[in-house]
Design a protein around this nucleic acid. Structure first.
Length: 387
DNA sequence: AAATCGGGGAA
DNA sequence: TTCCCAGATTT
């Protein structure tokens, strides 16, 4: 029995039952593949479900505002995937008469669709005999054939691509590709692979050499960079007790593009209150309805990304009703409910979940503008009003 | 070819 | 902590 037959029989016994596998709906396959880029099945599944419910087809997706798409992507990371997916949907509707491509080559022309995703969609949804090389399949092949080259270099890509093509069956390439992925995920795992019960135990070169953990060969990663984000919670308490504050959408070639956050001062090192008061950035606000009095001490939070360590500090600043300086700097005034509906990075989501009650407390506890630290008594009536 | 883009779960 | 996940795009 050849390789693909053995793999497929394993797949039909042990493969996972996933939402887009039954129908092979090309739109569903597309969305699932993009969501699952660099993302674990368990994490992506819920997002896939919500996404296709909100946008059942390419027309619905194309018609949606980008903010809505990003909001659904919130927490998943690599947000350019959401923007690219949305952009591609508009390409399809505007330039391709709303018809999804049917070949890998055509799919590759769309934003956010690279070699892997094009191969996966073409093989799974259209039975095209092309490889879909992801982290799982590369690991399986690297071990079975003891491939010493890395996928990070052109030579390695060529080797894996040709190897995958040589193993690919003409009749059910989609099942084959998914089988390889499931096998890599469930048996030929990155750590502690189940070699003892592996159906390829007898022919696996890495296993025979007792060197399974040497494969796949990978390039060394870049060490993360430290960044210091000073966020300012400029808030206003209305007579009724409602709190409004100022936010802004991120732009430029940086993390979290298109998502919303608080006014930000990025510095080269961690800032104290006095550092902030002495900073030129602060000078553009002072005396214009902003008195420079912080509400309590700043909160510190850390957010770890693959290539960056974000050291964030949140400074609360209560402002009065006449402060238009913030609006003039293109900050947006929102209340809690409005902000909830905007896409925001996990860091900001955490801040609001953990520390927003502090300012609500202050609003409820009266109009004492001099209050600089939270009194212990305000803690007791916190939950009296909200939710 | 190298750098970037998130966040989470497992070891 | 470190690794790596159904990778793609930009530099």
């Amino acid at each position: 029995m050849n390789f693909s037959s053995r793999l497929l029989s394993w797949y039909y016994r042990h493969g996972r039952d996933l939402p887009w596998r039954a129908s092979r709906n090309p739109y569903h396959v597309w969305v699932s593949e993009v969501i699952l880029q660099q993302t674990r099945m368990e994490q992506g599944l819920i997002y896939f479900d919500r996404f296709v419910r909100a946008f059942p087809d390419v027309h619905a997706l194309a018609a949606a505002p980008e903010d809505h798409v990003l909001r659904l992507w919130q927490g998943l990371g690599y947000y350019s995937r959401a923007r690219n997916l949305h952009h591609a949907a508009r390409q399809i509707v505007d330039d391709m008469n709303g018809r999804l491509p049917e070949t890998g080559k055509e799919w590759s022309k769309l934003r956010g669709v690279g070699p892997y995703t094009a191969g996966a969609i073409a093989s799974i949804a259209f039975n095209e005999a092309v490889p879909a090389l992801d982290g799982n399949t590369v690991r399986v092949l690297a071990r079975l054939f003891a491939i010493e080259e890395s996928m990070d270099v052109v030579k390695g890509k060529t080797i894996f691509d040709e190897l995958a093509r040589s193993l690919l069956p003409e009749d059910r390439p989609g099942d084959f590709n998914q089988a390889l992925m499931d096998f890599g995920s469930m048996v030929c795992r990155p750590a502690n692979p189940l070699c003892a019960e592996c159906i390829f135990r007898g022919s696996c070169k890495a296993f025979r050499a007792k060197a399974v953990n040497r494969f796949p060969v990978r390039k060394a990663k870049m060490p993360p960079k430290d960044r210091y984000f000073n966020y300012f919670f400029f808030y206003l308490v209305h007579p009724g007790g409602d709190v409004v504050f100022f936010v802004r959408q991120r732009t430029g070639n940086d993390i979290w593009r298109g998502m919303y956050e608080l006014p930000l001062l990025e510095t080269e090192w961690e800032m104290t209150e006095n550092d902030v008061l002495a900073h030129e950035w602060w000078a553009s606000f002072a005396g214009q309805g902003i008195d420079g009095v912080f509400t309590g001490r700043p909160f510190s939070m850390k957010q770890l990304l693959t290539h960056q360590r974000i050291h964030a500090r949140f400074f609360g600043v209560r402002v009065d009703n006449k402060s238009n300086v913030l609006l003039s700097k293109h900050f947006m005034r929102v209340n809690k409910e409005t902000f909830e509906g905007l896409a925001k990075p996990r860091l900001l989501e955490r801040f609001f979940r953990q520390h927003m009650p502090r300012y609500s407390d202050q609003a409820e506890s009266g109009t004492d503008a001099d209050q600089k630290t939270r009194s212990s008594s305000s803690k007791s009536n916190r939950s009296a009003k909200k939710s």
